[in-house]
Design a protein around this nucleic acid. Structure first.
Lengths: 336, 336
DNA sequence: TTGTAAGCGTTATCAT
DNA sequence: ATGATAACGCTTACAA
């Protein structure tokens, strides 16, 4: 029976005390004579010693693990954000693990509890069901991705989605569209509301009346976009342009138009949001609004680091990055 | 200054010993009088006590966390597999966290070290760079997803990809195709080799000579498929059918065909592999080979649980699930 | 059924 | 620069 070696075994083999071994390992050798350090390193090598982070965490109360909680790993929006988070966190020595909840609130809670029980050092989350109070009782520094009402005490990083909505709708209006549909996702959250508001405000501003049948809410995935568009196309007077709350929905919508034989953009314009990679490869390529995904991830990481190290202002911070219109082939002049 | 409460605080408040508190928490009350248990539970509630899994793990040497290491979170193949793993692991009380390495071997290693240092209980991995030896020194029960040469000591779960390749090529051959191209991914690994072999064997069997210019290796993503197809189309005598090693590549290829104005399937047939959701929504919808993704995940979890609990056979186990042809619109009779 | 006490493998404090 | 020693918060024999 061979136990895993501990620093005590290493200390014995190197002929020093375990404190010295610990110094070599965690302060990477600061305050240790070079010769001694080498001795210890040789012993570590020889015994195949592996640092026990669990014991270390118990003592230091830090794990160097960050949880990134997202609803839908299938949406290519997230990997870009994740890269931003990881690139920053990596440099600071944190590992970022993903927690995908598949739009299930229960799963989201489960992961939050796991993070708490295992004393993860921070959380970056796009919340779907968890309340601010729950997030607070987690007692782990957290920053939110996206814009949410009712999380006044947390840092938040997202994009200017109201502005982004306007960008999209303005584009359609300038092309002469007057019958503009809107497809957005349901989820348990308020996600999409700022876009819905942007949509409603805009209609009013340019003097169009709201038509309830032009607003459809569907599951936040490609199939949802597909269904949503089918529903819009089945109307006696379908819209000539459709704004989808994200590219995934828009791609589903585009697919539905294809299947129904409606030419895009000649008879129907479709615009999305996010600018995921796939948006550029549809037929026709999707007009959309570019969201600074990677930067969102980076800023979330910066905020989180400040929280973890208790530096920076105590009040919650907000950062909403600007978006940009990306015109491609799925939008064109209104047929009317 | 308010410390986080420990079982000692709870014990004091409830007027019992900390062993009793521990029993209430971890054996969920077995061997504790109901009355005492209630007392303890009240104290837990009152103090807002949260179990410290780090301390617990140090003692028990178990964390109840499983690492799922994958190369490319962007590929919708993985979420389905992940769901299979999670659904099984959930029931056993394990949390599954994702480690996405973006095809970077260094990242993969980093996560493996994290899993080791933090004493994760198991690993499900689709390895890209890490060797069997490295995986072994991790000293954590692991099972591999996919079929790989040179990991003789590990359980492996995947699909019958050689058979799957034949399914695809047979379909093309029956449609009369004689000039069949092959696009596969690079990655650092041998991934795709069984498919390459299947391809070469098949050509030989039906009496076609291998044409090197028909075999292209590209990055394992949509852009790779796009480029690969461009390359094939630029040949003096391009293939009439292309087999792509997965749907992502196939979708990129389809896109390239569209852009080049080559009608699919009239002048060019494209077949993929995996049957990710998006494959059914391209124009035309993609003919592909269905892989039992969810089941692969489930079986990997079963194997892993057996390893963790040291039950089941000691020898490495293999499970390769059968695939199935899914004919859609992207394949048709050879134009020749 | 409950309590006592000995670890688990570190890090941090204080001497030397 | 190094060593002794006391935590960190929990689980688990063993005893009562």
């Amino acid at each position: 029976v061979k136990r895993r070696p501990t620093i005590i075994d290493v200390a014995r083999d190197a002929g020093v005390s375990k404190s010295t071994v610990s110094r070599v390992i965690s302060n990477n050798g600061a305050g240790v004579r070079d010769e001694t350090r080498l001795q210890v390193e040789r012993a570590i090598e020889k015994l195949g010693y592996a640092h026990n982070a669990v014991a270390s965490s118990l003592r230091t109360d830090r794990t160097n693990i960050i949880l990134l909680a997202i609803p839908d790993i299938t949406n290519p929006f997230w990997p870009d954000v994740a890269r931003g988070v990881q690139d920053v966190m990596d440099r600071e020595g944190y590992a970022v693990v993903f927690a995908n909840n598949d739009w299930q609130g229960q799963r989201e809670r489960m992961f939050l509890w796991m993070a708490r029980r295992n004393r993860f050092d921070g959380i970056v989350i796009n919340p779907i069901a968890v309340s601010e109070a729950e997030l607070r009782t987690t007692a782990i520094p957290a920053v939110l991705i996206g814009s949410r009402e009712g999380y006044a005490n947390f840092d938040m990083v997202g994009s200017q989605s109201y502005q982004a909505t306007r960008l999209a709708l303005d584009h359609l209006a300038q092309l002469g569209h007057r019958r503009i549909g809107f497809i957005y996702g349901q989820g348990v959250s308020r996600l999409g509301y700022s876009r819905l508001n942007g949509y409603l405000d805009f209609l009013q501003e340019i003097g169009l009346s709201k038509r309830d049948e032009y607003i459809v809410q569907m599951p936040f995935d490609r199939a949802g976009g597909f269904q949503g568009m089918q529903q819009l196309l089945s109307l006696p007077q379908p819209p000539t342009a459709v704004f989808a709350a994200n590219d995934i929905l828009a791609m589903g919508a585009l697919q539905a138009a294809h299947q129904a034989g409606v030419p895009v953009p000649q008879e129907l314009s479709i615009i999305g949001m996010d600018d995921i990679f796939a948006a550029s490869t549809t037929t026709p390529p999707l007009t959309t609004v570019i969201k600074p995904k990677y930067q969102i991830g980076q800023h979330a990481a910066y905020f989180l680091l400040d929280r973890i190290h208790k530096r920076g202002p105590a009040e919650p911070r907000r950062k909403f990055l600007a978006c940009q219109l990306q015109v491609r082939g799925s939008t064109g002049p209104s047929p009317a």
